[in-house]
């Protein structure tokens, strides 16, 4: 039985309500690409998600449709998900080299007290 619809686009396609669907084979699809988006020249590209695509040209095209529909965009990168190498969250202790890292923090170097004390001492000696 051909479906009667309120939507002329459905009617045009003369869809059979009783047709069966052969089904798709699992994992039988294109590559996934991770997408990186740059809002403005000079800024970093930021990871925004991924697309399914058969090659990098179409990954860029789908990336544009998916992640650049609104707002400013000047550039996109795509890279095959398979080519991204990542650390494991379970190993996040590898980033804990020491408990505190003030020695590599600019704010932890306070010299004004010593400078002022030195100036005071030199003035008295004169």
């Amino acid at each position: 039985m051909i479906i009667k619809s309120l939507d002329p686009r459905v009617d045009r396609n003369e869809m059979d309500a009783d047709a069966t669907f052969g089904g798709l084979e699992s994992m039988d699809q294109w590559q996934t690409y991770e997408v990186f988006h740059q809002t403005k020249r000079g800024q970093h590209h930021v990871h925004v998600g991924n697309v399914h695509a058969p090659n990098h040209d179409m990954a860029l095209m789908f990336g544009k449709e998916q992640f650049a529909r609104r707002g400013a965009t000047v550039n996109l990168w795509v890279v095959k998900s398979a080519d991204v190498f990542a650390t494991d969250y379970a190993d996040s202790d590898i980033f804990e080299s020491t408990a505190e890292k003030l020695h590599r923090d600019a704010g932890s170097y306070k010299v004004m007290d010593r400078i002022n004390a030195y100036k005071e001492r030199v003035k008295q000696e004169l």
Binding site: Q31, N50, S81, A82
Partner: peptide
């Protein structure tokens, strides 16, 4: 020959 991978 290209194997699909799960997105990150």
């Amino acid at each position: 020959d290209e194997k699909y991978v799960t997105p990150l």
